[in-house]
């Protein structure tokens, strides 16, 4: 399709090991993500989902294939993207506010100082950190740090938002709250989002589609459409929702099946 904001075609990645052998990490990845869509990459650890995300973000080279963001071939970090890192990755020597302002660095010439300050303040408020704006990262909780990481990614109003297991290091309750906050934020922005996670419930709650990846070599096994109505604003809305549990089971089956279905059974066509 032509209106894909993120267009991945035939992409692979391998590391040279010894003279003749090479380790294939990703093979023949094809994925199109359309404007405003939220797609999750799910898979067992080692399937290369983070590597794939970093390729879209221009942080990791690929060969062969082509990754395009906004129609432009990715050979360095694309313009107008936001990236949320696993452990927030805030600069410890900058305050929360100053860290959020980093998200405007790319556009610093198009804003007056006052304008930039206002935007940062508004974004800090949106993630509920106004009270902590002048704190250093180590003075706030992990959840607040990740909120700041999210604010930094969003403050420049990026076309593409890439998130690498942003809530993985948080406790279950904080994680749920942040998932709900993210759902609300995503509803309000038009950013096209790719979200890496190993939490299937999280993927079902947030995504329009879920790309399930398999290991060895990493490739996209199946893309599952999450045909649940939006807006989805609270995790509990999905509790007891039949379709949600079906989707969840389907994704889990794909992830787990990848590892446990013995080849003989698969060959005989007696798939569970």
């Amino acid at each position: 399709m032509d209106d894909a904001i993120i267009d991945i075609r035939g992409v692979g990645k391998h590391f040279a090991q010894r003279r003749d052998s090479r380790k294939v990490v990703l093979e023949d990845i094809n994925l199109q993500v359309h404007a405003g869509e939220f797609v999750s990459l799910v898979g067992a650890s080692g399937c290369g989902k983070t590597t794939l995300l970093r390729m879209i973000g221009g942080l990791v080279p690929y060969e062969p294939g082509a990754v395009r963001v906004n129609g432009e071939l990715v050979d360095s970090v694309p313009r107008r993207i936001g990236f949320v890192f696993q452990d927030a990755a805030l600069l410890p020597w900058r305050t929360i506010e100053e860290n959020v302002a980093i998200g405007l660095n790319e556009y610093r010439k198009s804003f007056s100082k006052q304008e930039a300050r206002d935007r940062v303040a508004a974004q800090v408020e949106l993630v509920g950190l106004t009270e902590f704006a002048s704190y250093l990262p180590r003075q706030v909780s992990g959840g607040m740090q990740q909120r700041a990481g999210l604010a930094r990614a969003l403050v420049g109003e990026p076309d593409v938002l890439l998130m690498d297991e942003p809530f993985g290091a948080l406790d279950a309750f904080t994680r749920m709250r942040l998932q709900e906050e993210l759902a609300e934020i995503v509803r309000r922005t038009s950013a096209t989002t790719v979200f890496v996670t190993h939490d299937v419930d999280e993927a079902v709650f947030l995504s329009d589609r879920i790309a399930v990846m398999s290991i060895g070599p990493g490739t996209i096994r199946e893309v599952v459409d999450v045909d649940l109505p939006r807006p989805r604003l609270q995790r509990q809305e999905l509790l007891g929702n039949r379709r949600a549990s079906e989707l969840r089971d389907r994704v889990l089956e794909l992830v787990i099946g990848d590892r446990t279905v013995p080849p003989a059974v698969e060959a005989a066509g007696v798939r569970p």
Binding site: L59, G82, F83, Q86, A89, N105
Partner: peptide, 18 residues
């Protein structure tokens, strides 16, 4: 310098001096 902080500089288009 942690890999993640180098990535932050790359994603948000830090100049060499920055």
């Amino acid at each position: 310098t942690p890999r993640a902080l180098i990535d932050v500089g790359r994603v948000y288009k830090f100049t060499r001096t920055q």
